[in-house]
């Protein structure tokens, strides 16, 4: 699935943010459902003119089990979360964490230079830095006086 981002006026962005917060709060107040319905993994994206930074919440996923690929302006993150105790004789009281294989694609704000993409992993958060493709960078045009 590709999540398309639209450029929105700031008021809509703010309202969207509030809506997301409300959803998160609602889920927090319903511990029985325990935020299970939301997609895994959750993604945040930061941009400027030069690059895009994507952070992904992947707690409990071994960095070795993570796979990142970039094609033009689509970033795909896939991997597998393995259970802590892969034993049979365990009896679950609560099961809110989803284990198994996952894959998500997001559309980036601009085409990126795939050779210069870097990724780091710390405490269950994956951070991917994607520099913008040279050809796509905004250029300053000087106006000559006649």
């Amino acid at each position: 699935m590709i999540y398309r981002r639209y450029t929105m006026p700031s008021i809509w962005e703010e309202m969207n943010r509030m809506q997301r917060e409300m959803e998160r709060l609602m889920q927090a107040f319903l511990p029985e459902t325990g935020r299970v319905s939301t997609v895994f993994p959750a993604i945040n994206a930061w941009t400027n003119d030069e690059a895009e930074i994507v952070t992904v919440e992947v707690p409990g996923v071994d960095p070795k089990d993570l796979d990142i690929s970039v094609v033009n302006d689509v970033l795909t993150i896939s991997g597998e979360r393995k259970p802590e105790d892969p034993k049979d004789d365990i009896r679950y009281h609560r099961r809110e964490r989803v284990c198994g294989k996952f894959s998500r694609s997001i559309q980036l704000a601009f085409p990126v230079n795939a050779d210069k993409v870097t990724a780091s992993y710390e405490n269950g958060i994956l951070k991917i830095v994607l520099p913008r493709a040279e050809a796509d960078k905004p250029r300053k045009i000087t106006v000559k006086s006649a």
Binding site: V58, P59, E96
Partner: peptide, 27 residues
Amino acid sequence: RRVYLPRTDIYETRDDLVLVMDLPGVD
């Protein structure tokens, strides 16, 4: 700051009660 409920698995083995909790960004 906002406070979130972390997703948790709780299970029982023969000798232990085990709790596994997602705390991204926590060391």
